[in-house]
Each structure stands twice: as C-alpha cells, then as structure tokens.
Design a protein around this nucleic acid. Structure first.
Lengths: 232, 232
DNA sequence: CGGCATACTTGACTATTATCAAGCTGAGCT
DNA sequence: AGCTCAGCTTGATAATAGTCAAGTATGCCG
C-alpha cells in the first residue's frame, strides 16, 4: 500500500480518529487494487475476508435467489461496504461487482477485527458507520413497501438532482437496467415509468435527466426526509 | 428500577459485558414501565430519547408515508429496538406501538451514549447488536425484492415452525393483518395466499398453523440461509 | 465504413397485487 | 342465548407489475 493513497482513506469518517499506529497496522496489511468492469468482488455466502473501500469507480451490491437477481445498493467513492459481515465474522449477505473500472482498498477482516478490539476510537467510528448503513437500508425498505414503482423513480430523480447540487440536468450514474433493479422494477417498467413522468416535466436523453419544474415532480413524489434524506 | 429486573436485561448480549459500575449507571436512569396494547411508544421523526428493551409482550415497528402504513419489524422479548437512532442521536425512522400488554425498559439515550463512549466492552456489544440489526433488515429486503407474496408467506411459516422447535403445529404470534403488512401484502391477499398453500399441506385455523409435510412446503418456499436463517 | 452486440424501448399479453364491497366468524358482553 | 364489533374471508374488479417478442438506438471493433 503506497504512502500517497493514505490521505483519502484516512479522511474517511471510519478511519479519521484511529490512533496512528493502529491505522498504520491496518494499511500495512491492505491492498490497493484496480479492477476492470463487471468483476465479481465478493459472492454472497462466502466468509468475510476483507473490508472493501471504494476509492474510485462504482460498485453494486446485489443478491440472488431462485434464479432471480436484484440490486441492493449502489456504492460510489469514497465509501466502504460489507462492514457488518466483517465485524460479525459472518458470511456476506450480498455479492458485489464492479460497474466500471474501480480502485478498491482491501483490508483483511482479521486486521479490522483486531484494531476494532484494541482502538476505542475506531470502535466508535465503526458503530457510527454501521448505524448509518442500517438507516440506509431501512429507508430503502420503507420506499419499497410504501411506494409504487413510479413514486420510487420520481423520488430517486429528486435525490439525484439534490446530489448534483440542484442542477436542472444531471446524469443517472448507472445503467438503467441496474437502476431498475435497484428501484425494484423491471427495465421495461422503468422505461414506461420515465414516459409517465414526462407530463411532470421530466425529460430523459440517454443517461441525462432534465427536470423542468421540480415543484411539479415534488407534487407527485411527495419526498420525505425519513425516506429520502441521506443526512438524516 | 427494581433490583429483581436486572438479571434478564443483564443477560442480554448488549449488556452482558459492561463494567458493573457502568451497568448500574444505566439502570439508575432507566424506567421499567408496563403499557397496555395499542400504545404508540415512539413516532418516526421524533428525536431519540430512550433506548427501548422489550421484556414482556410484543411491539411492532411501523412506518407511514402518504397515508399508507406498513410493518417493518415485529419485536418479541427479550430484545432492544432503535439502537441506531440512539447511537447516532438521529430522529427515529420508524414508529413503534405495543401489540399486547408489554413491559418495557426505557434507558435514556444520553446515558447510553455516555456509557458507550466510556465502556469499550459496551461499545463492542453495541456494534455486534447493530451489525445484527443491519443484517436482519438486509434479509427482509432481499425477501421483498426477490420473492412474491406467496413465497414470502411460505418462508415465514417455515421460519416460525423452526422457531417453535419444528413442531407440526404452531401459533402465528401476531394478528394476520399485521403479518400481512410485515410481509408486504394486503390482508386480503394474505388470506388468499394461505388458501393457495393448502395443496402444500398447510392448514390454518385462526392463529394456529399446521404443516402436514414440511418437505412439500420447502419445495415451494426454497428457503435460503442468507435470507431466512436468523443466526447467520 | 459496415457488422455486431448490447442496452434500451415499445406493444401486446399475462400475472400479480390492490381495492372495493359484501359476507362470515368468533370472542366478549349484556 | 342473542347482540355487537372487529378481524377475517371471499368474490368481482381495477391497478400495478412482469413476461415475451419485436424493434430501435448506440457504441465498439475489425
């Protein structure tokens, strides 16, 4: 692991407060690796070997059952994934694959568990991270159970718009087929949902979305901070 | 808080390893309270004031949006809920209400956060609890996205059967209307789903379920440890 | 440039799920 | 016992979502 890669990882809330010697111990065992697109990084059911930190690129967490597959989460830099499995030393509940070329730091799970036991500051940070992850999944589940496909898409677009700083046009960041799986619908229905949003001032051209009048879309989407606000 | 109530709380994984003086500090500020059925204990959006421990009875965590309501989790003794909100000092994402008469221990959130900062053993236990909660929600979400209503019910029955020690007959533990909301369907469709399971040897009489031949039901349900196994 | 592969879109159809409106049933009560 | 109410069930219908099949667009590569 090269010296120059430290800062962006060190800056993550998860690692910011660790004692220097413990952080170094983690980095000594860590790999920084670059993966091509479509590489399966972990497979659900496998034992938890590494904590992953996405430094660049994009990763999706997905799950399969009975021949069906769905996207559980989309992971963008800089963030970690599968903290829970690492901490509990339990098998992964989700698989992960790269969506684009991605630079990923792999930290051996046993190192994480060792530092976690020895460094109270790290333990606190892990708790904050886990609590955050928990709340993200709860919000996603609320959206799935309380909204229909059109409403989920409308709110997703409003969230993306906010993440893009409120610009009138922004990019979707992921292929539509993956977005559809993430939103709990088929690609065909995502297509139709986009068309249904046209009367609300939503224009889609490839991966570019333009929202003419947010107020109009908000009236349909009825966003709630307790589902859509990532900072809550 | 009475002395005789300590043991069952002390025995919880979350509290088992705390230093005695810290545990006492928590208990000094705690209330043990008995609530009648149908009492709203917390409301989503409110600030996190207390960590709740269900000692007796049953509680449901639910969420509402745009006039719709759904059940997110069913909580039975002895377990805690809303740890994540307490730790992050963030607003509750879910509401909670008693389903039956329930005895509940309320521990002020600020006490929890104080002991959490001071007691490494407690911090570790909180992490384990949170990681567990996270994995429970992920499994629930996987079920929602990968299975249809009938499959969710079939797997729920197999889980309940396992929880009852594999007995051929067992009780549902909650009203069917709440079970339906938990499984992400309407009461009407739960009714129909139960009838659809008759050919698979499932007989329902009130809240009592009898599974004639588990193998038959398993063939339909296709349970997976990564969705249905509570210990994984 | 043409050819190919892949994502996306569209339409027709099917399946699943929700809604509405009666009925039914059983526990609790007088 | 009979009444009442709430939960449950059932059937008819509507809304929502999935499937299949075909077509279009786009980007990559020789």
């Amino acid at each position: 692991m090269l010296e120059r890669d430290f800062p962006e990882i060190r800056a993550l809330p998860l690692f910011a407060e660790i004692a220097p010697e413990n952080f170094e111990a983690l980095m000594r065992g860590a790999y920084l690796q670059t993966f091509p697109p479509q590489i399966e990084l972990i497979r659900e059911g496998d034992p938890s070997d590494f904590l992953h930190v996405v430094v660049e690129g994009a990763v999706e967490l997905f799950a399969a059952w009975n021949g069906r597959e769905t996207v559980m989460q989309l992971v963008h830099p800089v963030s970690t994934f599968i903290v829970a499995a690492t901490i509990r030393d339990a098998p992964y509940l989700m698989s992960a694959r790269t969506l684009e070329r991605a630079r990923i730091v792999l930290i051996p799970s046993q190192d994480i568990r060792a530092v976690f036991a020895a460094d109270p500051a790290f333990a606190r940070a892990v708790v904050a991270e886990l609590a955050q992850c928990y709340r993200v999944v709860v919000k996603h589940t609320k959206g799935l159970k309380l909204r229909n496909g059109l409403e989920r898409l409308a709110n997703h677009l409003l969230r993306q718009r906010a993440a893009a700083g409120g610009a009138p046009a922004f990019e979707l960041e992921v292929e539509k087929r993956r977005l559809s799986a993430f939103l709990g619908m088929t690609p065909e229905n995502l297509s139709r949902a986009f068309r249904s949003l046209e009367p609300y001032g939503v224009k889609v051209d490839g991966a570019t979305v333009r929202i003419a009048d947010p107020a109009e879309l908000i009236r349909l989407a009825r966003p709630s901070p307790l589902i859509d606000d990532s900072s809550v």
